[in-house]
Amino acid sequence: MRNDGIDELGQLAAAYAIERVQPFEDVTGLASALVKRYLLTFEDSLDDYQASRDASREDPNGCTWPEWSALDLRTRAHYIGLELAPCAVAMLDRIAESETDIHDVIPEAWEIGC
């Protein structure tokens, strides 16, 4: 069972990610739906988010950022949201690339039986 902290982390991450995919959103709401779909399993990757954040704490200018364990909930959510948004955009691109082939299998009239 999920706890309140995970639920709040997911809601905040969703808000950040959905804000980032807004330029790619259309009337279908597909970009937001993809973000929500990825959020269904985000907690399975929490250790990966922590490892990635901790491994990249030093920027090219030599500034060192706090460890994952020292971050507040909003900062963790922002980090997760920044990862989820490009995943949704990449999937939108894949869908767009494959749409040209989607109508290659148009049914024969006799298959419909009208």
Rank of each mutant, 00 (worst) to 15 (best):
D4Y: 04
L84D: 05
G62T: 07
I80R: 04
I6A: 14
A70S: 10
L71F: 05
R74I: 01
E58M: 09
D44W: 12
Q50F: 00
L71R: 05
E67R: 10
D26T: 05
E19L: 14
L39V: 10
S56A: 04
F24M: 08
I18K: 03
F24Q: 08
L92G: 02
E108W: 03
W110A: 13
D104I: 12
V27P: 02
A96G: 08
A15G: 09
P86T: 07
E19H: 07
L84Q: 00
E111N: 09
T28A: 13
V105D: 14
R94H: 12
F42A: 10
E58R: 14
G62W: 06
A85W: 07
Q50S: 02
E83H: 14
D47F: 08
E111Y: 03
P86W: 08
L84E: 00
P60K: 07
A15P: 04
P86N: 09
I112T: 10
D101K: 14
L73G: 01
G62F: 01
E111P: 01
L40W: 04
V27N: 10
E43I: 10
A17V: 03
Q50P: 00
R37F: 14
I106V: 12
A17K: 06
D101H: 09
S45C: 11
G10P: 03
F42Y: 15
